[in-house]
Amino acid sequence: MANEANTAVLGDIAHARSGDKGNHANIGVVAHGPAEYALLVTRLTADRVAEFFAPLGPARVERFELPKIAALNFVLYDVLAGGASRSLRIDTQGKLLGTAILDLELPA
């Protein structure tokens, strides 16, 4: 849960998994519980995720809410440098994004 400074690292309150659809990636972020989900809804915005992954150059980031399972789904458009087969990155399919996002610091 949030620490004294009222900031949290995402991996402390949620888990995540990522994958690809063509040149787009999605990251599903599942909160540990309802309180953590409420925190994510206000703090883990599409803009925050776009900023975190800005070095990978997503065209835009869209956020979807799944409150019944306390999860957010982020779609990062054109973030895979061509996607499977065409991308020159070792992570052609964005599989690492779900683990990388756990280091994201949520703003107070």
Partner: peptide, 14 residues
Amino acid sequence: RTVCEQLVYEIGDP
């Protein structure tokens, strides 16, 4: 955890 993670795996608009 395992079921929710897989539910949101490789989806767009849920």
